[in-house]
Structures are given as structure tokens and as C-alpha cells.
Design a protein around this nucleic acid. Sequence first.
DNA 1: TCTCAACTTGAGGGGGATCTCAACTTATGG
DNA 2: CCATAAGTTGAGATCCCCCTCAAGTTGAGA
Lengths: 198, 198
Amino acid sequence: MRKDAVHNRERLLRAARELFADRGLDVPLEEIARSAGVSIGTLYNRFPTRDALVEAVFADRVAAVAELAEQALAADNAWEGFVAFLTGVCELQATDLGYNDLAARTAGLDADRGYSLMQEIFGRAQRAGDLRADVTLADMAFVVWGVAATIRATCKTAPGAWRRHLALSLDGLRAIAAGPLPAPPMSTAQTRAAMQKC
Amino acid sequence: MRKDAVHNRERLLRAARELFADRGLDVPLEEIARSAGVSIGTLYNRFPTRDALVEAVFADRVAAVAELAEQALAADNAWEGFVAFLTGVCELQATDLGYNDLAARTAGLDADRGYSLMQEIFGRAQRAGDLRADVTLADMAFVVWGVAATIRATCKTAPGAWRRHLALSLDGLRAIAAGPLPAPPMSTAQTRAAMQKC
DNA sequence: TCTCAACTTGAGGGGGATCTCAACTTATGG
DNA sequence: CCATAAGTTGAGATCCCCCTCAAGTTGAGA
């Protein structure tokens, strides 16, 4: 790849990162190109589809989540690790509207290594008796979707509000709080399908 | 108003109600007109803006929510009334994607009479000691936003899943479950602003 | 320095939605 | 039955976004 091409690629990634973070994933591609100081044609040369650009921009997040997961597992207290992990993921979403859009449709479910780590965090909190026994990993999607919606609604006007929402959700996940659940957990296929619809 | 105009208005409302329910509020207006068997021009004659059409279609929901609220207040048990009310609102959202889009931005906060009824349901459950003391009416927005997001994601693939989400959220609202909350409740102004951003 | 593949450019075609308006049709009261 | 105000129509203007490609430009190796 030629030097100028590399340079333009980087400028595009920087511009996309910033615009995605501010306004979500559906920023016009022309605007990204303009903001990067290149033409729309160049953007299409480097990233043939919007998804390719999105993937390149957020590639590092997979690792960030895995990092969070490892820290969570390193915690002494299983429940505190669980809380820290979910808080970390939501923080990522809160500081980047683009990732907020994205997390709702991936939610760690694709990330090979990330998924098994999440299972471990989840299972450990459950075995410790703090996380209620009648929930599944699939139920975490409710937390992510819910907090994501709150972040979208409030990030400009009440920046910390999602923490309150998350805290309420977590209280509902504690064994202490467990009441009967009216529906079976979603199957993996249902969860996957639902995520793609975001 | 001429007889045929009344007739067309009704056909438009029926078509819009159905399409909104199936696919949400952003159905193309041309499609609504076509489905009603009139031209796009007629639609604009009867409803100068999309909002006017939406408002006309969902006018009855305000009353439906008030009705739910009254039933909730009639319940013997304050907490059960509270649960029944939120369940009812979510059911309305689940059976109508259009109302689902809408509820997130109105959530009863406009409805003069509905609002005071909600306050009463909420306060009663709190005074009874079942609803945790550290939440505000504004926190109900989290439930509505969250469940609405789950409904949107799952309505086609896991139709009952939102009930599970709602149950978990409600468990988090019970006094038994109360843990410390990390942020102050949203002010009325913040809540209102956030709703308009949906 | 020369050459050529790699790269950039931006006008323009295409699609889809919103909204308008001049020409046409029809209900209704007299 | 007529006059006319009320209503309908749909082509097309406008806007916004996506994507392509022929023409022009530039980096890098020979």
C-alpha cells in the first residue's frame, strides 16, 4: 500500500471514530470523507462498505471488552466482578454513541474469547449465590439494550443517568430480589436474531 | 367537511394504524396513502404533517392509559396495582410497534390526568413499602425505555421475552432489592428533554 | 528522470422519501 | 340541473444519501 493511501486511511479512521462517537453509526459517509479531508471516492477505495469502516473503527473494542472481562475475573468478589464488567461495558457505550449502536447488536456474543469469559464471570457470580439462579446469559441482553436506550435518550441532557438505570437493573439481578419470572429465557438463536434486528 | 372527505380520512386512519402497528412510526407516507386507496395529495390534505397523522391515530391511547391507571388504583394491593399498570403499558407497546416508538417519547408525562394518576399509583406503592423509597417517577422512564428497546429487538423472534425483562426490572424496583443508587434521579426537565430525543 | 501501477477526485446516476400545486373531479345547497 | 366550493390527483420538484467510474494525479521502483 502506498504511503499516501496509508495516510488517508488513518485520517478516515480518525474522522469516522470521532463522528461515530458523537452522533452514532448512521453519519453520512460523505460527511466522514469531508471531515477527513478526502473525497468520497477515496473513502470507498479504502472501505468498500459502511460495515468495513465500522469494523475497522471499532476493532479495538473487542480487545477492550476482553480486557474488562479479565479484570472482572481477577476481582476477589464474584458479584463485584460481574458488576464491574457490566459497568465497564456500559461506560464504553456511554462515551461513544457509535459503540452504543454497535454493542446492542453484538453484545460480546460474537467475540470468541470474550464470550467464554463472559460465561465465566456470569457463572461465577451465580455460583457465589449473589446473581439470581433463574437468569441466563441471554438475559444480559436486556440490561445492555435497556441501558443503551437510556444512554441514547439522556447522554446529552443527563450524562450520568444511565448509572442509575444500571444500578436498578443490577438490583433486579441479585438473588435477594428474585421473584418468579413469567417467561422462559431466550434461546441462543432468538438472542442472536434479536441482536441483528438492532 | 364533505362526506367523501370524512370517508377518506377514516380510511387513512385505518391504514396508518395498521402500518404503524406492524412496522413502527417511520413507514413512508406514500405507502399509507396507497394502502388506504387514496393519493398522497389527499393524505397531505387531511394531515398536513406526519405528526398530525400520528396524533390522530394514537389519540385513543391516552384514554387507554388513563383507564389502565384507574384499574391499577382500584386494585387492593398497591404493589400489584403498580405492576399491573406497568405491565399494561408495556402490553400496549408490545402489540403496536407504532405506540412503542411513541411511548418512549411521551410515557404518560404529557397526559394531564394520566400523570397525576401515575403519581398516585407510584406514591401508593411507595407508601405501602413495596416500591423502594429511593426511586422517583422519573425512574419509570428507564423501565419504559428499556422494555421498549427489548420489544423492538425481540417482537418478531421472541414475542414474550419482554415480560421477562419487565419482571427483572420490577424486581429491581422492590424495596427488598434496594441497594445504593449511584446518581441522583433525573429532574423533570431532563426527563422531558430525554423523551423528546427519542 | 521516466514510467506505470496505485491512488484520488468529484460529477453524476440511482433510489427513496417528502411535499406542492395546477388541473381535474365531485358533493352539495339552491 | 347548475354553480361552486370542497376535494382529489399524481407528476414532478427537492432533498438526502449511496455508490461508481472515467479522467486526472502521484508515489516509487527501474
